[in-house]
Amino acid sequence: MRRSLIRWSLFLLAAAVFSLPLVSWAQLTKADLDSRLKMESHVGNITGHAKDGAADYHRYCEGCHGVRGDGNGEVAQWFDPPNFPKPRDFQLGIFKCRSTPTGTLPTDQDLYDAISRGFDRSGMPIWNTFTKQERVDLVAWVKHFSPRFVSEKPGTAIQIPPEPEVTAERVKAGREVFARVQCWKCHGVTGEANGPSASTLQDDLGRPIAAFNFTEGSRPKCGDTDQDIYRIFMTGLDGTPMPSFADNIKPDEAWDLVFYLRSLMREPSKEKAIAQQLGLKPVDPNAPAPTQ
């Protein structure tokens, strides 16, 4: 009798001591979960609420992005990179299209734009049939999958100076930037995604990925205005080999580079006409590297 009482007391005591950390852990994750379900998003003067986006997500997004947002929806298995990149894993909180520096979270506006725009050369559809409110709610629901959106703030969007006038000098200068920072290592000297490193490129999850081909008339995933293209190489596409050049290209030079990239693209443009007039040749991959 005595023995068993002591044994019981000991057992209870041990249980109490060991469960203390468990209790606080459980509380933490519940609090974390609660704050995730309360996730909001703000685009313009519209506020989105995660729970209001859940139904649309379930109906329209889950098949690809998965119930848990981990990118493993039912049809994800049919996506075959590099030509068909896999749906994004939202739990990681890593996004391609950002106005914010590499390594930081995108703004709500960035996610809103990505959803509205869709992704060319991928299975990600254009979702511009949703109302603005519905899309902002979806942004909040997308964010709720990643603990990062609870613990971190989005990065500060980069500043894009006003776009200057396109001139022959600028297109020529842009070619020099393309040569100096060696975009051609991946994109190729003619922009055909056939640079010396193109064939071995992999994304952060070890899947093959193709560099962007400027010459075949496809739309950049993160938008195709001049501002979008400026933003793409000054922030990088996180989760992919496409790095940020923010430390290596000055804002004014960045515009020169945008103009040169336009001259590589298939669509007729002022830049393309200028390059033709000047007889601009592709950069020489064997020229000694000019330093900054």
Partner: peptide
């Protein structure tokens, strides 16, 4: 990224800071 360490990707051409 689940550890709290966030991946980043920066170019360093010749002479980069």
């Amino acid at each position: 990224p689940m550890t709290g360490n966030i991946p980043w990707n920066q170019s360093q051409p010749p002479g980069a800071p």
